[in-house]
Design a protein around this nucleic acid. Structure first.
Lengths: 136, 136
DNA sequence: CTGTATCCCGTCAGATACTG
DNA sequence: CAGTATCTGACGGGATACAG
């Protein structure tokens, strides 16, 4: 239970220690996933790939402020994790296309929700942040 | 369309350029949110707070490998963004409790899904990563 | 076009020590 | 108990130059 599902409040309400929210077993790989996906660019790239395959240059334009270094690096990492596929066409003008994998499709869904939540509450957060900064 | 919803594949399949996935307007605050929430610890703390209020020390134990510095820092940031509330009881043994706000409850839902996805696919990703590393 | 390599700086983040 | 301060090493990430 804890985060995954749970429901019964009795045990959790009785004492705060038993559940511990995340058993620390999960902590490990949650951190792993977050390290791979939660970095600055991964989610943006995945989101950018939502509509279909994109080429290197398209990606670079689409993600706006990303540098080649970070684009290459993140792309490589994503590919290494099996979240995207890289397809290189050995043509005279070299062309490489990146697409999402079935694996990342599920993640995309979550990313979409995150983006939705962000666009839904970003001004609210900004307001909080403003107020807190001003009040300090 | 793009990221938010869409479904019809005809328009998207026809040409890859028109939608551009993320209009770059959204890029800005998506980055903002990701910067605030997508860092190493924020999501873990939010997840840890899922079951109810926790004190500083509990949090420190619950999130396992976090240092005081990062815990304080992240807590402060989260509070500043209005995602958690800090309640200090002016007692002889000082006690401070952190709880989620209504705002972060929606985020918690997404975080839960992310954790669910992570626990669902972490071995798959590990396999990919392993294979890629070995194959290199 | 699609990258890789290098330099270089700023921030992240841990360890440790100290305060209210 | 609940933090803050400082020092320090590691990594992130941009600019530029170069290569296939």
């Amino acid at each position: 239970m804890c985060v995954m599902e749970h429901a019964g409040g009795s045990a959790a309400a009785a004492s705060r220690g038993p559940c511990a929210a995340i058993p620390a077993d999960q902590m490990a790989f949650i951190r792993q996933i977050l390290d791979g996906v939660g970095d600055k660019w991964s989610m943006l790239i995945i989101a950018a790939l939502a509509d279909g395959a994109l080429r290197y240059t398209d990606l670079q334009h689409d993600v706006s402020g990303i540098s080649q270094r970070m684009l290459s690096h993140t792309l490589r990492q994503l590919q290494q994790d099996g979240l995207i596929t890289r397809t290189a066409y050995a043509e005279v003008p070299p062309r490489v296309e990146y697409t999402l994998t079935p694996l990342s499709r599920g993640l995309l869904d979550i990313v979409k929700q995150l983006i939705g939540w962000a666009s839904d509450h970003h001004d609210e957060i900004r307001a909080h942040r403003d107020h807190a900064t001003a009040g300090s």
